[in-house]
Lab assay of single mutants.
Amino acid sequence: MSGIALSRLAQERKAWRKDHPFGFVAVPTKNPDGTMNLMNWECAIPGKKGTPWEGGLFKLRMLFKDDYPSSPPKCKFEPPLFHPNVYPSGTVCLSILEEDKDWRPAITIKQILLGIQELLNEPNIQDPAQAEAYTIYCQNRVEYEKRVRAQAKKFAPS
C-alpha cells in the first residue's frame, strides 16, 4: 500500500471527524483483525431537504486505489439507486470521479460526498449510466419523482 495514499486518507479521516456536513457519514471499514482499512470507507449521503430525495439516507462505498490521490476513489451505492447517473452496479457516474475528466488530487472526501448529493437531485442527462431511470427522467418527470420519493422512504434511517 502506498504511504502517500494512507497518509492522505488519515488526514481526510481526521478532517472529517473534526468537521463534516450534518447527516453525512464517512467511516473507514475494519479489517478482520480489527485494524482500520483506510482504503475502503462506508459512507452515507442524506437526501437534500426540499427535494424528492429528502428523508432518505443512501449508503455508498468509497474504494481507494494505491495511487490515490492521483486517481479518484470508486464510489458505489449499496444497494444501487434508481438514478440516471448511477450504473446498474451502483457505481456513480460523475465527472469529478473520473481521472480523465474533472478529478483533481486536491478534491476531498467531503467535496465528493457533497457533489454526489447535488447530483442526486440534478442528474447530468449528457452522461446517462442507467437506461430506465434516464428514460423516465426525460419522458415523465412526475413518475420519476414518485419513484425517487418511494426510494427515499425505503432508505429512511430507522
Results as ranks from 00 to 15, higher is better:
31 N>R: 09
144 Y>N: 02
136 I>R: 06
131 A>Q: 14
36 M>D: 06
54 E>W: 06
140 N>Y: 07
33 D>W: 07
18 K>E: 05
153 K>A: 15
17 R>V: 00
98 E>H: 15
16 W>C: 06
56 G>H: 07
3 G>W: 12
70 S>N: 14
56 G>Q: 03
81 L>C: 05
48 K>V: 05
32 P>H: 12
92 V>K: 01
130 Q>R: 10
21 P>F: 00
32 P>L: 14
13 R>C: 01
66 D>N: 10
31 N>A: 08
83 H>P: 02
70 S>K: 07
121 N>K: 10
135 T>P: 05
14 K>A: 02
158 S>F: 09
98 E>K: 14
150 A>F: 10
149 R>T: 09
61 R>I: 09
26 A>G: 09
109 I>Y: 03
123 P>K: 00
146 K>L: 10
11 Q>I: 14
25 V>L: 09
144 Y>F: 04
111 Q>K: 15
71 S>C: 11
101 K>S: 13
56 G>D: 02
149 R>P: 05
150 A>P: 09
113 L>Y: 08
32 P>Y: 13
21 P>C: 03
65 K>M: 15
135 T>W: 12
17 R>K: 10
77 F>G: 00
127 D>G: 08
121 N>Q: 13
116 I>C: 15
63 L>D: 14
41 W>F: 06
10 A>C: 01
2 S>L: 02
116 I>L: 15
136 I>L: 10
29 T>C: 13
105 P>V: 08
125 I>L: 10
21 P>T: 02
96 I>T: 15
30 K>R: 14
69 P>V: 04
158 S>E: 06
158 S>H: 11
126 Q>F: 09
98 E>C: 06
8 R>W: 04
134 Y>H: 05
74 K>S: 15
26 A>M: 02
98 E>V: 09
45 I>L: 06
18 K>I: 04
30 K>W: 03
131 A>N: 13
123 P>W: 02
92 V>N: 00
5 A>E: 11
81 L>S: 03
136 I>H: 07
122 E>W: 08
75 C>K: 00
61 R>E: 10
150 A>H: 11
101 K>G: 09
18 K>L: 04
61 R>Y: 09
157 P>L: 07
82 F>V: 03
87 Y>D: 01
7 S>K: 07
83 H>C: 03
9 L>V: 01
78 E>S: 11
65 K>V: 07
49 K>N: 13
53 W>Y: 05
108 T>I: 15
158 S>W: 11
70 S>R: 09
134 Y>P: 05
108 T>N: 14
23 G>N: 11
107 I>S: 13
137 Y>N: 00
1 M>N: 06
154 K>F: 04
18 K>S: 09
53 W>H: 01
79 P>H: 15
55 G>D: 14
47 G>F: 06
89 S>A: 13
157 P>N: 10
155 F>E: 02
151 Q>A: 03
85 N>Y: 00
96 I>A: 02
37 N>M: 11
13 R>L: 05
54 E>N: 04
124 N>L: 00
66 D>R: 03
40 N>L: 13
93 C>Y: 02
6 L>R: 05
157 P>F: 12
55 G>I: 08
48 K>L: 12
28 P>A: 10
10 A>N: 14
88 P>F: 09
29 T>N: 15
112 I>D: 05
133 A>P: 11
120 L>K: 02
30 K>D: 06
151 Q>Y: 08
106 A>R: 00
61 R>F: 11
87 Y>F: 14
18 K>C: 09
126 Q>L: 11
35 T>M: 04
124 N>E: 02
82 F>H: 06
88 P>D: 15
135 T>M: 10
137 Y>W: 00
146 K>A: 14
8 R>E: 13
19 D>W: 06
97 L>P: 10
117 Q>M: 08
105 P>Q: 03
119 L>M: 10
141 R>V: 10
8 R>T: 08
18 K>Q: 09
121 N>L: 05
38 L>R: 00
8 R>D: 09
66 D>E: 12
7 S>W: 08
105 P>D: 01
55 G>M: 13
67 D>E: 13
87 Y>S: 01
33 D>M: 05
137 Y>C: 04
126 Q>W: 11
85 N>S: 10
46 P>V: 09
68 Y>Q: 00
77 F>T: 06
101 K>N: 15
75 C>W: 05
62 M>T: 08
67 D>Q: 10
90 G>S: 03
140 N>M: 05
156 A>R: 13
32 P>E: 10
106 A>T: 13
69 P>G: 02
80 P>C: 06
100 D>T: 13
15 A>K: 15
144 Y>L: 01
137 Y>G: 02
35 T>G: 07
147 R>N: 05
115 G>C: 06
69 P>Y: 01
10 A>P: 04
36 M>G: 04
27 V>F: 04
91 T>L: 14
101 K>C: 14
131 A>K: 10
57 L>S: 09
108 T>C: 14
18 K>M: 07
78 E>N: 14
38 L>P: 07
105 P>R: 05
155 F>V: 12
66 D>G: 11
146 K>E: 13
120 L>Q: 04
59 K>S: 12
124 N>F: 08
136 I>D: 10
75 C>V: 15
91 T>Y: 11
78 E>R: 14
101 K>F: 11
53 W>Q: 02
118 E>I: 10
59 K>C: 13
12 E>K: 02
139 Q>L: 11
122 E>R: 11
109 I>V: 12
23 G>C: 00
11 Q>D: 12
17 R>A: 01
75 C>N: 06
77 F>K: 02
101 K>T: 13
132 E>M: 09
42 E>A: 14
96 I>S: 12
80 P>Q: 09
18 K>V: 12
133 A>V: 05
39 M>V: 13
148 V>C: 12
50 G>V: 08
56 G>A: 05
104 R>S: 10
136 I>G: 02
96 I>M: 08
52 P>F: 10
97 L>R: 03
120 L>I: 07
27 V>K: 13
69 P>K: 06
158 S>T: 13
1 M>W: 05
13 R>S: 02
153 K>H: 08
2 S>R: 05
51 T>I: 03
157 P>V: 04
39 M>S: 05
14 K>C: 14
79 P>T: 13
63 L>Y: 09
76 K>I: 14
158 S>K: 08
95 S>Q: 03
23 G>P: 03
99 E>I: 03
105 P>Y: 03
110 K>D: 07
156 A>H: 13
150 A>N: 12
20 H>S: 01
42 E>H: 07
121 N>F: 03
129 A>L: 00
87 Y>W: 06
53 W>K: 01
20 H>L: 03
100 D>M: 15
139 Q>P: 06
53 W>N: 07
88 P>S: 14
58 F>R: 04
138 C>M: 11
119 L>F: 15
78 E>H: 13
137 Y>D: 02
92 V>Y: 04
64 F>M: 15
111 Q>H: 14
135 T>Y: 08
147 R>A: 10
61 R>Q: 12
94 L>D: 07
57 L>M: 09
29 T>V: 07
97 L>H: 11
63 L>S: 14
25 V>N: 04
109 I>L: 11
26 A>L: 08
141 R>H: 13
79 P>V: 14
129 A>K: 02
29 T>K: 13
148 V>P: 05
131 A>F: 03
104 R>T: 08
22 F>K: 01
111 Q>L: 13
132 E>R: 08
43 C>G: 11
87 Y>E: 03
129 A>E: 01
14 K>M: 05
16 W>L: 05
15 A>W: 08
135 T>A: 12
120 L>A: 06
115 G>Y: 05
73 P>V: 14
131 A>M: 06
85 N>L: 00
87 Y>P: 00
113 L>S: 10
121 N>D: 14
64 F>C: 08
157 P>E: 06
72 P>A: 13
13 R>V: 01
148 V>K: 01
65 K>Q: 14
71 S>A: 15
11 Q>R: 13
12 E>T: 01
110 K>Y: 05
136 I>M: 11
39 M>W: 08
23 G>R: 04
114 L>Y: 12
34 G>N: 07
134 Y>Q: 05
1 M>P: 05
125 I>M: 08
112 I>W: 03
53 W>I: 02
72 P>G: 08
97 L>D: 07
54 E>S: 12
33 D>V: 01
25 V>E: 02
32 P>Q: 14
113 L>C: 13
17 R>Y: 00
145 E>Q: 11
134 Y>D: 05
103 W>F: 11
99 E>K: 11
37 N>S: 14
112 I>V: 14
88 P>V: 08
75 C>G: 11
127 D>Y: 12
50 G>Y: 14
50 G>Q: 10
2 S>M: 05
149 R>Q: 13
57 L>T: 07
